[in-house]
Design a protein around this nucleic acid. Sequence first.
RNA 1: AGGCGGAUAGCUCAGCUGGUAGAGCGCCACUCUUACACGGUGGAUGUCGCAGGUUCGAGCCCUGUUCCGCCUACCA
Length: 885
Amino acid sequence: MDKAYTHKNIENTWYAEWLRKGYFHNQPDNRRPYSIVIPPPNITGSLHMGHALNNTLQDIMVRYKMMEGYNTVWIPGTDHAGIATQNVVEKQLAQEGLDRFKIGREKFIQRVWEWKQQSGDTIVNQLMKLGVACDWSRQRFTMDEGLSRAVKEVFVRLYNEGLIYRGEYIINWCPRCSTALSDLEVEHKEESGKLYYIVYPFAGQTGGITVATTRPETMLGDMAVAVHPDDPRYNNVIGRKLVIPIADREIPVIADHAVHSDFGTGAVKVTPAHDFDDFEMSKRHSLPSLQVIDPAGRMTAAAGKYQGMDRFKARTAILEKLQKLGVLAKADDYALSAGTCYRCGTVTEPMVSTQWFVKTKSLAAEAVRAVQEQRTRIIPQQWEKSYFEWMENIKDWCISRQIWWGHRIPAWYCDDCRQVTVAVEPPHACGHCGSVAIHQDEDVLDTWFSSALWPFSTLGWPDTTPELAYYYPTSILITAFDILFFWVARMMMMGLKFMGDVPFRDVYIHALVRDEFGKKMSKTKGNVIDPLVIIEKYGTDAFRFTLASMAAQGRDIKLSEQRITGYRNFINKLWNSTRFLMMKVTESGVTYPPRQDNEIPIDAWINEKLRVTATAVRDAIDNYRFNDAADVLYQFIWHEYCDWYLEMVKIASAASADTRPVANMLFVHDTIVRLLHPFTPFVTEEIYHILLGIPGQHEGQYDSIMRTHYPDPAHLERPDQKAARSTADIDTVIGIITKIRNIRAECNVPAASSVDLSFTGDSGKMAVTDTYAGYIAAMVHGKILPAPDGGQAVRGSAADHLDGLTIYVHLAGVIEPAAEIQRLSKEMGRLQTDLEKYKYKLSNDDFLKKAPQEVIEETKAVNEQMKERYEQLNASLQRMKDLLQ
RNA sequence: AGGCGGAUAGCUCAGCUGGUAGAGCGCCACUCUUACACGGUGGAUGUCGCAGGUUCGAGCCCUGUUCCGCCUACCA
């Protein structure tokens, strides 16, 4: 074994081996199922920290459940990311001087598939570096045949039920991607703009109304000016006509309750074609709408002389004109939130157009009920509120996209009767009039439409497969909150609708990974930490353990490399403890199976700590408290197993030929490695195989650690009375050793020099110092002398106290007493402040009257202990002072 | 505007149902003791954002308040 753990070769080798052996593959059988579908990363992506965390947590769950005996399946895959992918390929075309219209739809789709073959699996390969136990034989892609069939099937069924409809409404439009977007695909960004006050004169009369707007360029499409019906300023002008200053067109003044009298001038221009509120208002007042901005973001013919001008340039031009006309009253600085395309960042344009929508109300109601009834649990629960809020205010979902890459809408229009035919299989003729002059809708569906089916489409739906029957509903969905609405909510709606049951029992929402300063990682900021670089440098296991240890519920993760280094060291510690173990095993000839044995006190002690740890780890994982699980393991392995147990085994095995401690150490080590496996799969597999080199009967002769059982505290030996006594004794010994080391260090005793020790105290404690004299002497570099006569304090010694025991460290001649005086004074000072708190508490009548009896008893007991200790320290202090005389 | 979360040791964070404030990293001192210097031993450090309140007792419960982050929203 190498002196330091090196991850490099080990990781790739084992992952290949796992794949070769098919360990990640399962099929329905009579075991309990545990299933997860991966949140499909999109094919244009590459692995980032979010993926790393997300998949690490899923992998921990899958490996844990696998070792618990569940039939686990983790279905991986990718989504086709319609807009993003189309953008990538369009950029490629542009470099060749082409565009998609030049090569046509068919060729274009072909190009996208070609690109997908080359680059689409990048992220899949990167995921493998994380060690994920995905069943790659079940890998799916949202555009593959089966999933496409599911999409069509769902579309047709929803259409037939009237839950999908087509209509002319105002939607969000991205002029750059030239497609409609759903509400969710628009990100609102704070932008500093201006609020312009423009005077609209009355037609044929003097005077006018001043309106406030942030978008003067839309005024060419104004159809009215609205005021609040109860606004006294405008009472008498309702119904009168105004003239749009630069358009020479008359529009009415209307009254509508949606107008906020206290904003701007209390009068608002109404542009139905380019504003959501105005669109709604126009419906209420039967106003027509006039489109003045085209799909490319340029002014239309309706904009008169501004035709063809970019919408933002038109704004400037129109403002100049208004100024000249003297109707621009003023312009205030104003912070507005501009909608931008989540894929390309372009400011979106509200547009009236004909699109397909999903009627969401009834679907959402079901999805809400499922969570209310806890058929699906959202963890941490605080996210329920966001979920409910969004679901209860949900609007119809615009699902058509004016792009080519995606699932083409299965709707055909008849050139003769104008009716639409919706069908899974392409029809030969119009379903209404039988005409063969039909053509398919040009648009494709929102990518999230297919993602929403993921939990059942990946299991074979619409066919009734054994997988679907066995693995659905899936056990848990693990994801970040940023796609709670995009994805989780929609999967809930679709799962309930088409499977009649929730898509998952639990939803675990984890944190976002930020940089060490808490900023969101982004390429433009340059603060991105690349997971692959980290893996290369520190190893997957250290990286995964770091992520797990930082994955506290409800908090973002600020990742720093320092933290990763710390856990890299931890992996190395584990590695070296294995080296030590193997040395001892070879030396002693201990063989498998490892024997848990409580006969020897140090063994009883570590076994008990192990039992507590295993219990805590399981409990933590069961409750998705990954950081707790990681911390408990870290603490146990480093600070109990390595710091104390291994050190004591050294002493025990040096003193006697008894091999039982080594056998027990093997047992503990074997258990630790399995406890750790879900977190750090590679190093634990490697160690498992090293342990396989020890002769004897191994558990089932398995060839992978993931085929062994996860340690179950119920199967670990519970301490009997004797073992419990041993455990307590070792705790005492550790206390004694710590006190002595403290004195040594504080009094500057050179590490190389041995000190003389002696003890006085009650018979129980004296027996402990006697029994464990070997451990104490060795671990403090000291020599134990017989107890001083008559329990007299030893002259020239530093002393400390532990329960009924006084510990003397003979320092006469070794150091000067001043240091010891300082140490004692410091300790006494600390005690003093605590004692005062207790004194106050115990002199408080209310406390004595109202606090529970056991709390009072405990307080009194602790107070007594502290007082006694204080007295003892004081006595030691006096002795030291005498020494100075 | 509404909602959610955060504010605890120099840094990053734990602290479940209220009962003497914890970890990791960093820092200081000593130490290359035969698994590990990616190591060992010891140590220092907190008016638990602020102000009130409830309580015998509050980091934890209640009210208010200040910053910070995020989400949702049709005040043009």
